[in-house]
Design a protein around this nucleic acid. Structure first.
Lengths: 98, 98
DNA sequence: TAAACTAGTTTATAATATAAACCAAATAAT
DNA sequence: ATTATTTGGTTTATATTATAAACTAGTTTA
């Protein structure tokens, strides 16, 4: 009935990040920080976790002399998100009494 | 864009419990334990938290000589669940690029 | 050149989830 | 009848997670 929810994705900030990356395909650290209103420290930690899980790729570059962290969703990340959403549905809908 | 998710409800077990109670209106501890496949200890703790939040009522009785813990959702619990689901939608759908 | 800002990371702490241990009573087995 | 097992939980200890605070390394502005 209730399938286990992906613990990586069942986190407000990580879910928001993945959700954004699925929409935009590529986003800077600062953009994600603005959109999610997360603190930089928290975002940094959660991005590492998403990377470790293989859900996102992180590319570090320089732009206009400043460091720039670019993030992209991976196919694995897309699959995980889709499965998470699917599993979550069972928790959100009213069940028939059986 | 991303509203804060209710921290009481953004927990796999507590969400499952509330989801069940919205369907059935009344459920025993043992029923919730079976349906959620939670350990008794974990369920006990999470039910207390839901009670403290005012999301459920807990009634302790005896049935066939054994203790029986009955749980019911409260109006506040229903409202919180509905708001949680509404807020969560923003995390689950692909956003338009603006 | 000092102050303030950008773009982060690391670390310490608070909060949370979970399992393990425990409790009281009931029932079953010897 | 007393020992073992089961029921229906609670409490407590520990592991995990989230978060904020502090820090790093450099850039820009005054």
């Amino acid at each position: 009935m209730f399938k286990d929810l992906d613990v990586i994705l069942h986190s407000q900030l990580r879910l928001a990040v993945v959700s954004l990356l699925i929409s935009v395909k590529e986003a800077e650290f600062t953009y994600l920080k603005e959109q999610t209103k997360a603190t930089a420290g928290n975002l940094s930690v959660q991005l590492q976790k998403l990377k470790e899980a293989g859900y996102i790729d992180i590319e570090k570059k320089f732009k206009d002399n400043y460091p720039q962290t670019m993030c992209r969703i991976t196919p694995k990340g897309i699959r995980a998100f889709e499965e998470y959403v699917e599993n979550l549905k069972a928790y959100l809908t009213v069940k028939p009494k059986n």
